[in-house]
Amino acid sequence: MPRFGMVIDTLKCVGCMDCVVACQTENDVPFGHCRDWIVTETRGEFPNLSLEIRSERCNHCDNPPCVTCCPTGASHVEGFGKTVQVTAEKCIGCKACLAACPYGARFVHPDGYADKCTFCLHRVKEGKDPACVSVCPTHCMVFGDLDDPKSAVSQLLKSRKHHTILPEAGTKPRVFYLT
């Protein structure tokens, strides 16, 4: 069984937000909400500057605090790809998972349940990449099986410097950023 993850090349990413729009249309994310977003981090002082741009989303953590805190099992680790998913029909809308996520990756859908990035499992099951990955004009995102040493994601992690977000949270995030 694969363990899906995402590798994002911050050197290529220009922060155009195409991934955000593609996610919104693909998944009918209600207007005013987003499952992925762009963070820019500028360091230094004029004119000695550096900039990191990241397309962020649910990290589908190996150790997901949102799943741990869920009182109903609505937030769960899906067998397929070991991804973190929400079953809307089980969610009571207690919002504990929103508070528990160090990444702010979740929101309350206007219909009342917790919502977030699904890694576009419905697309992945059809053999496609997630919408954000497949739309990106810079080809900065790669999706695949982290447990398969031959996969593109594993190869990139082997050959390039990378980091995750807030690894100190102990969540073992599975979205990696190449630098």
Binding site: P110, D115, L121
Partner: peptide, 8 residues
């Protein structure tokens, strides 16, 4: 249009 975490 709102489908949430349910696949389209």
């Amino acid at each position: 249009l709102a489908m949430g975490s349910k696949p389209p």
